[in-house]
Design a protein around this nucleic acid. Structure first.
Lengths: 145, 145
DNA sequence: CTAAAATTGGGAATAAGTTGCAATCGCTCT
DNA sequence: AGAGCGATTGCAACTTATTCCCAATTTTAG
């Protein structure tokens, strides 16, 4: 896996540096797949792998540029990054706790192509995000009420 | 129309003030339906209707809260607002010229509800945006190539 | 191992949006 | 129409998210 990263970085024209390795490793191993720059920074700091915040931002931008990660703009006022595993999916975001779930729906994908074609658009990308309250937060709200 | 606004504002629990009238009027009359707070501020200033930027932000938030406008988070790092004409729609954004087109697709809407239900989410909102190159920009690109 | 080029850290700078507060305005009651 | 009170505004100071600047350090080709 380490080899893979070296090669990947080189292909992207990026030198293999400690911050880049740490950030990549974090994204690869953390169970939470969707992280903000700040969260990446904190997570690294907590595991003793200090990387300056400026560098976290720079590296995430470079990774995004190189297509290694995907940047999302949910409704929170900051970007969220996720490793690009090559498998496209859309998102369900809990507006209460911020948790993110993923899904794919062939029917929707298909309709999108049709719509774009009808409008004369040549699709480059698309983002479908469903916002709502997750089951956990729903129950919590009910208890409180 | 003026009466309508008065009533609408009252129903939202908002007093009928000059900034709110100006901003509403702007959103109603400008051909460009999708505006950022900054753009609203500039447009007003250009037509001699000064409203402080802080107030523009406050009013747009209140309008959004009251459901009079819809707030979008496209990929630009700032919110854009659009008058809510009551007809839900999603967006096609040209990544070349920035033009925004709207569309609705019942099949997609339906699938979304199903997906949310399956995930135990209680939907509050959703944004589907298709990014691509519009026909005009496509032809332009072809001519150049 | 060396030097040039890339990268980093840290703080200052910027952009977008929010907030505290005193002055002003809109609305209700008379 | 006028008074009073709470809502609203403008301004400036403050967040938050992110980028920029630059001296010091690290990578990598040779």
């Amino acid at each position: 896996m380490k080899e893979t990263l070296n090669i990947t970085l080189r292909q992207a024209g990026l030198r293999v540096t400690s911050p880049r390795i740490k950030i990549w490793h974090l994204l690869e191993t953390l169970p939470q797949r969707h992280l903000s720059a700040e969260e990446v920074y904190q997570a690294l700091r907590e595991m003793g792998d200090e990387v300056s915040l400026a560098t976290v931002y720079r590296v995430l931008n470079q990774f995004a540029e190189a297509g290694l990660v995907i940047r999302h703009h949910f409704e929170e006022g900051h970007s969220v990054f996720e490793l690009d595993e090559g498998t496209h999916h859309d998102h369900l975001v809990c507006v209460q706790c911020g948790k993110v779930a993923e899904f794919v729906d062939e029917a929707i994908e298909e309709r999108q192509s049709i719509i774009a074609k009808e409008a004369g658009f040549s699709i480059t990308d698309h983002h479908l995000t469903i916002y709502g309250v997750c089951s956990a937060c729903c129950s919590a709200a009910n208890l409180r009420a």
